[in-house]
Structures are given as structure tokens and as C-alpha cells.
Amino acid sequence: MGILDSVRAALEPSDRETPAPIAGAYWCDDCAVRIPLESRPDGNEQRPCPDCDEPMQFELSPDGGSCAC
């Protein structure tokens, strides 16, 4: 492939899907497991941690106030 083909391939739109925005994540304080979510959960829904079975906290995304990084 020549230089022009490389530049053309780099500028063409990609067929890859863009990832969905993250609204926040469930976070386990005990073992640092993070489960990102595309939308906020309804009410005070709690999830058990898949590693330690302790309740996980929902935290908002970094641009939403309470970072779930």
C-alpha cells in the first residue's frame, strides 16, 4: 500500500461503532469492581458485587458531578 492509500484509509469513515456514553457506574468499595451503565438506574436499585457479593454504590459519570472513575 502506498502513502496515498494509507492517508485515504486513515481519512475514510470507520465501520466501528462508537461506544455509548456512560451515565455512571456501580462501584464496589471493598474490591474496586466497576460496572459502567449507559443510563441511570431507577430509584435506589442496588446490585451485589460479582466478586464479593457486597452491595455496590451507583456513582455518576465524571461530567455528572460524582465521579465513577
Rank of each mutant, 00 (worst) to 15 (best):
R8S: 11
C49T: 05
C31L: 04
C52L: 06
A68N: 09
P62C: 11
M56V: 11
E17Q: 03
E59V: 07
I3F: 12
D53C: 09
P21D: 08
G24R: 07
P41Q: 08
P50R: 10
G64T: 02
I22W: 03
R8A: 08
P55R: 07
A25R: 04
R8D: 10
S61A: 15
E59Q: 13
I22K: 14
M56C: 12
C49K: 00
Q57T: 12
Q57V: 11
A20Q: 12
D53S: 13
Q46T: 10
C49F: 03
L37V: 13
P55S: 07
L4P: 02
A9M: 01
P13H: 08
C69G: 14
G64Y: 02
C28E: 04
D29M: 06
R8L: 07
L37S: 11
W27H: 14
D5W: 01
D15G: 08
S39I: 10
S6Y: 00
R47Q: 06
D15L: 12
D53H: 03
C69I: 09
C52S: 13
C69A: 14
G43H: 07
P62S: 11
L37C: 14
D30T: 02
R34L: 13
P41W: 11
E12V: 05
S39M: 08
V7W: 07
S14D: 09
A9R: 13
I35H: 04
A9L: 06
C67Q: 13
R16Q: 08
A32F: 07
A10D: 13
S61L: 01
P36F: 06
E12G: 08
R34F: 00
T18M: 03
A23T: 03
L4V: 09
D5G: 15
R34D: 01
L37K: 06
G64I: 03
V33H: 02
F58C: 14
Y26P: 11
G24P: 06
A23S: 03
D5L: 08
C67I: 12
R16N: 08
R8F: 02
D53R: 05
I22E: 13
V7L: 13
S14R: 10
E59H: 15
G24Y: 03
P41C: 09
D42S: 11
E59N: 10
S61N: 14
D42T: 09
S66W: 01
R16F: 02
